[in-house]
């Protein structure tokens, strides 16, 4: 079965690097838990301001050693540092900023995504619970001007994560515009999934073999540049 063959794609760090290079200078960005968190390592020195929904703008690099302060963490519960120009605010202000469409890009992880830009990320039914950890994900989907997904292209067992129909509970419908995986960069358009880039050593056929919906191959298809 072709879809069970695990293709050798990018590391999680390189997926994060590819997303980082897609972010524009002069933007306000929120990073979700998982691969998105790693993006912060690749944007140091750039004119990108990270919003952390705990109530912080201009979140600095991760803190280590004596710089760790239990009163200063990001939304993934990692100790972080402040920077010149950092501001703090309370949670209603933070989510007002998010729902009020002031965040340019939110990058989230996902369990499944389909060709309409719907995605599922807050609950895995295999856990056998109707409830789950929603966190800030649905607010970011509702409010960010652009929503990107960064994830592994398939499950650990090689099953589809890019599917025709979500079988996991949705986080949001029709909001995702770009998908970055270990194998490909895909744009979600009204016509469907457009394959823009493939990882080094990966072909368009390889990506299609692990993608359930039919891909539209961009006429400008290229290998990812780092």
């Amino acid at each position: 079965m072709a879809e069970k063959t695990k293709l050798k794609g990018l590391s999680r760090e390189l997926i994060a690097l590819r997303v980082a290079s897609a972010l524009e200078d002069g933007t306000y960005v929120n990073l979700g838990i998982g691969i998105p968190t790693l993006i912060s390592d690749w944007i140091e020195g750039r004119d990108i301001i990270l919003q952390s929904e705990i109530g912080m703008l201009k979140t600095g690099p991760l803190a280590t050693g004596n710089a760790i302060d239990q009163d200063l963490i990001n939304a993934s519960c990692q100790p972080v540092t402040s920077m010149l120009g950092t501001s703090y605010f309370d949670i209603a202000e933070s989510f007002g900023m998010i729902r009020g469409q002031h965040i340019d890009v939110a990058v989230m992880g996902a369990l499944q995504i389909n060709d309409k830009g719907d995605y599922a990320g807050w609950s895995n039914p295999a856990r056998g619970l109707f409830v789950g950890n929603i966190g800030g994900s649905m607010d970011l989907c509702a409010g960010a001007k652009k929503l990107y997904i960064a994830m592994e292209h398939t499950t650990r067992d090689g099953d589809y994560k890019v599917v025709k129909n979500l079988s996991y509970p949705a986080t949001a419908l029709g909001m995702v515009s770009m998908l970055f995986t270990d194998l490909a960069v895909i744009e979600i358009t009204s016509k469907g999934l457009v394959l823009l880039e493939v990882a080094p050593g990966i072909s368009a056929e390889d990506v299609q073999s692990v993608t359930e919906p039919k891909l539209i191959i961009s006429k400008d298809l290229q290998e990812m540049q780092f």
Partner: peptide, 15 residues
């Protein structure tokens, strides 16, 4: 607008 299109829209999410 938060939760539209998810189970949050349909009803209270509780065990």
């Amino acid at each position: 607008p938060t939760g539209v299109g998810s189970v949050v829209e349909e009803g209270i999410v509780t065990n």
